[in-house]
Amino acid sequence: MTKQLVALRVNRRLHELAIESSWLLLDTLREQLQLTGSKRGCDDSSCGACTVLVDGIPMLACTLLAASCEGREITTIEGVTEHGALAAIQKAYGDWGGAQCGFCTPGFIMTVKHLLATTPKPSEEKIREALSSNLCRCTGYSQMYEAIKAAVEAEQKGLAGDEKNAPSRT
């Protein structure tokens, strides 16, 4: 099959790629751009490990054609780190045991990033609903709730990373 030139905007950088129409966004990210943070965990669009943001909206990279994404802004886990430092949610997932084996973590981070962008102070129910798009096999999700609450507090105080003023949780 002949390839076509596609301009993909990923993590604020434009990439011109020669790809086949049938290539999935996930394979293209992983194999053409070496952005291996997005994972393949299933083959039936059920696990969410490949979640990326497309124009700010979480979607499954395994369920999108790369060629269909031309002209859209794609953000992968590699684009979440802020100025080379951990984003609040990344740090909180580490601190609170939100990541064990870590394979599902990038997908969860993308889902949660969108949740916090649209709902800065989510209720527990809202968090649970958002997390229900992604499967995790290690944590039972419990410690993720703690991580998200911690990230919300850190974000709200604008003090992500400033441990001196980190909230004490009681």
């Binding site: 943070g37 590699e78 979440v80 580490g94 990541a99 870590g102 973590t105 990038p106 981070i109």
Partner: peptide
């Protein structure tokens, strides 16, 4: 204590076998 490899996992930088080439 946070896992010593937590950042590798939360940033997507950590490599699993299928990430290698």
């Amino acid at each position: 204590i946070p896992m010593i490899d937590a950042a590798a996992k939360t940033t997507g930088a950590g490599k699993y076998t299928d990430d290698l080439s």
